[in-house]
Design a protein around this nucleic acid. Structure first.
Lengths: 69, 69
DNA sequence: ACAAAATGTAAAGCTAGCTTGACAATGAAG
DNA sequence: CTTCATTGTCAAGCTAGCTTTACATTTTGT
């Protein structure tokens, strides 16, 4: 799962701290998200897409996830 | 978070069991999802939207989540 | 009515998403 | 060079999403 959170955030001229406050999550969450440490919950994905006025599909690229079987 | 999983599934004439197999999740997950017991992960949301050939926004209605503060 | 299919419920357990806190590294500006 | 803002790392802990198993209820077909 790839995402454009960092790009969008910078396009909006926001710091990680500002973004985390607007979304009501911790700064750690933003850092980890941008670094691709894990995927956002669908709630966070919705919050981000609303803030950035785009769709979830625009912000997150689902790549036919490699199964770990 | 409201969702139209049940509607979509029936529109596609599938059983919960069939759907769970196609998505590679347990039947319990489908039941709980349809019953609104919890929100899907963004991965599951993507899988569902792909299968039903629609967007996540079409399938899930995010309702400015009531904060539990 | 009966059997089989589909849906639902309950409970215990694992892991990913998120939190908090403390501290390190990098960057920009005087 | 120092200071302050910004970004990053580490670690421990909580909870929501998902799993498995086993059994109960409802629906459907003959």
């Amino acid at each position: 799962m790839k995402n454009y959170v960092r790009d969008k955030r910078m396009a909006f001229g926001m710091t990680q701290d500002e973004l985390s406050e607007k979304l009501d999550v911790s700064r750690q969450t933003i850092i980890s998200l941008e670094k691709g440490k894990y995927n956002p919950s669908i709630n966070l994905a919705f919050k981000l897409s609303r803030l950035f006025t785009c769709t979830i599909e625009d912000l997150f690229i689902y790549e036919e996830e490699e199964k770990d079987v």
